[in-house]
């Protein structure tokens, strides 16, 4: 079997084109496709055939990485709708959201400078819950509503949160080693 490279990522894995996905089904479909296209399965082929299969393995992994994370999955869904949620085309973010971001950021920085692991753990937990809320809203907007611009705004919020969560994780890793 070979993978049709022209398929969109949802079709590739046999999933409905929705934000809410069955993660176990995604994992299973990914494993099944990699079992076909992974380079380990093709050591006996000619180098030309191997490099063709390589392209397919690369695309399958790219597709999986995109659909696995809520943020990239939402960005991809919007991309399929012709909407670039990138920060470059950012319309103004709501001031209260930006204010909240600044407060988060200051709290992370403060905890980092004070080497306060407990505070960072707390922040990481609160950020995870906040990201969960935003993701739930995104699911309503993308799967229920028909206001992609509102969804794009939520995606941008999730981008901010994602970055903050990464920074908090890095700060934690630095302190506990």
């Amino acid at each position: 079997m070979s993978v049709d490279l022209s398929l969109d990522y949802f079709t590739l894995f046999g999933l409905p084109r929705r934000f809410g996905i069955d993660e176990a089904a995604l994992d299973r479909a990914w494993h099944a496709l990699q079992a076909e296209v992974h380079p380990d399965r093709h050591t006996h082929l000619s180098s030309g055939e191997r490099s063709r299969m390589m392209q397919e393995a690369l695309r399958v992994n790219e597709a999986f990485a995109t659909l696995k994370k809520p943020l990239t999955r939402a960005q991809y869904l919007l991309e399929l709708l012709g909407i670039d949620a990138g920060i470059a085309t950012n319309t103004a973010m709501a001031p209260e959201f930006l204010m909240e971001q600044m407060e988060w950021r200051e709290a992370v920085e403060e905890a980092r400078l004070a080497s306060d692991i407990d505070a960072l753990e707390q922040l990481a937990l609160r950020l995870r819950m906040r990201a969960g809320e935003v993701t739930a809203r995104l699911k309503e907007q993308l799967d229920g509503g028909n206001d992609p611009d509102a969804a794009a705004d939520t995606v941008r919020r999730l981008m901010f949160l994602d970055k903050l969560r990464r920074e908090t994780g890095d700060a934690l890793s630095a302190l506990d080693s």
């Binding site: 980092r112 400078l113 630095a174 080693s177």
Partner: peptide
């Protein structure tokens, strides 16, 4: 590398 990278993140 990773640890140092994070330590010096500030």
């Amino acid at each position: 590398m990773l640890r140092a990278g994070i330590e010096r993140a500030g």
